[in-house]
Nucleic acid binder design. Structure first.
Lengths: 192, 192, 192, 192
DNA sequence: AATGAATGAGATTTCATTCAT
DNA sequence: TATGAATGAAATCTCATTCAT
């Protein structure tokens, strides 16, 4: 069991080293050599855990996900304040800085495998959000003339648009401010 | 002047070859060797026209720009129908397919030089759009409690969010439909 | 003794796994990882039984040997029909397919250790065959003007030449047909 | 044209360096790094000329071929002395030492590409020799009851068998002596 | 201006082998 | 005796870029 623990630690060390380097340089210019050096393991060890650099990225992109969203469904009360709250809280603890966010996008755009993973993630997000929107429509909180699927899709456009432009911007503003302002307007468009 | 013409033609041939390859593969996996082969020139010639691969991308990303937006300012009449029209028309002739759009994003994310260029482009877009929004606010068409700069910023989030999610999606829907639907909601949020 | 048995079984399982893989791929491209996976043991276990990959091959190349040859010496009667019979029977049960034969040659050619082993094997074969030839010459069955050692050497040339060309050929003919035809001619050359 | 010359020289330098190293070590243990170092070119240069190590070997295995055989057909006179002469002369100038011969076999056995090339070479050899044998049969010099194709096949068995056993032997005897003795017996078997 | 051979640092990946458990 | 995580040297191959012609 000690062995299992060590294995897990090694895996974590590699992932943290990779993230730390992606946060300093771009994805493409980060080499496996650098990663293993920082992680303090041998080059071969990397490939005992990840079959390629792409594979590592697939493990990492879960960081984009908003897991808390799913839990919202079961809570009662008006939807929009709940969502505003969650967006605010999430952004507080968003684990990616600008450079790392860029690195993730870059990796996803450059690898068919990571792209597929991303598509699944988007699909999961949609599946989680649509029921929320539908319940909001049923209780009269949200406009009914726009299909729930469309509203969801647009919310994702808004989310990823804010994310990518923020990551490419050179100013130091916080992501959460952008996100809150943008979603404020988004909510204005969908309340009935 | 014949010589000037030939030079321009060579430059265009190289750019077209590059775009054509980016539209098939990712940016990173497209090599200069492939580009010059398709363009029918020698490898050295590439570097007579572009100082590096990055440099080529800087030339290419103008394709993201919505030049027509600037012209809107001088036309009279209500703003929103005008913008809807222009978005619709632009999308009709959007020159990039999904793969090529992804390749451009990838290139920009991986090159400091291209990223700088992108920032300038974003700044130019803002400078063009803010006055439009301000005039819309002055004539009472748009809400006044949201600063024009914020509205503009959010419009860009919406635009690039739609663009990047569309480019990563595997379905075959047209970009313009996404864009029109998304901006419809956006407009609903900003009208007074 | 149960333990001894298990050890022997493990050793056999590893050898069989290796042979099975050599019969599908080349020697060089077969990895110990693959072998132990197929044998159902851990990687470390391999090295408990064989000190290296080379060592395994040394164990395996005995398959080339024609052990029955030695027994011929003591039987009476004319030599050539006996040898024809034995070649025929051996070929029937030749344990190597083309790919595996190639793999063995490849392994021997690439390892000084295996090469040495092969030389011993060849020497043993010579030692077994020369007396046979000599007795054939004494009883007048074979020409006497060619030294027995030369005849033996040429027999080996014939044997290995047939073996290697067969293994490199892509047609599906049986080894034994080639071998019988070739040795027919060989015998024609040496009978008096 | 000076440039063409230089190119050819570079190609030759690489091939000679490779052969020289194969003649010292085995094929597998000769690295491209060693080859380019000895050839005095950069690593990338190797790949401008050969797409892989396999590719280089394909270029090299022509050394096995007996080009002069083809020319024999048109000369008149008895066949066997002519062939004896040619075998003798060829062996005198056989360009491969033992280690290099082993390296070539090893390379061919380990690469599907090189193996295919080898099969073509064998086929070409057959096509060249069969007519010779047929003409020998027609003029009554050779036995007619063995098909010319079989005789040819067996000649190749004899040739390659002698070659590979010689290359694996540690004694310093000359290849040509082996070859002459072996073919002497072979000829005894086929004369009428 | 055009060429394309040469460059060479550097990338990813492999794999036989070791050794602590 | 069996295990399998860790090793790390070494292998092949890539490719943007340079520069002599």
């Amino acid at each position: 069991m000690n062995r299992e623990l060590k294995k897990e630690q090694t895996r974590v060390r590699i992932k943290e080293a990779a993230m730390s380097l992606f946060a300093e340089q771009s994805y493409e210019s980060t080499t496996i050599e650098q990663i293993v050096k920082l992680a303090g393991v041998a080059k071969g060890t990397f490939f005992n855990y990840f079959s390629s650099k792409d594979d590592l990225i697939c493990d990492l992109q879960g960081l984009f996900v908003i897991e808390e969203i799913v839990k919202l469904k079961d809570k009662g009360g008006p939807l929009i304040p709940k969502m505003q709250l969650i967006i605010f809280e999430l952004m507080q603890q968003f684990p990616l800085n600008k450079q790392l966010t860029r690195a993730l996008f870059q990796a996803i755009l450059g690898s068919e495998k990571a792209l597929d993973k991303h598509r699944k993630l988007i699909a999961d997000l949609k599946d989680a959000i649509i029921p929320l929107v539908e319940s909001g429509q049923e209780c009269g909180e949200l406009r009914k003339e726009i299909p729930a699927a469309d509203i969801t899709q647009i919310a994702l456009h808004t989310y990823f648009g804010t994310l990518i432009l923020w990551s490419m911007d050179e100013d130091e503003e916080k992501l959460n401010e952008h996100m809150v302002v943008t979603f404020d307007l988004f909510f204005k468009g969908i309340v009935s």
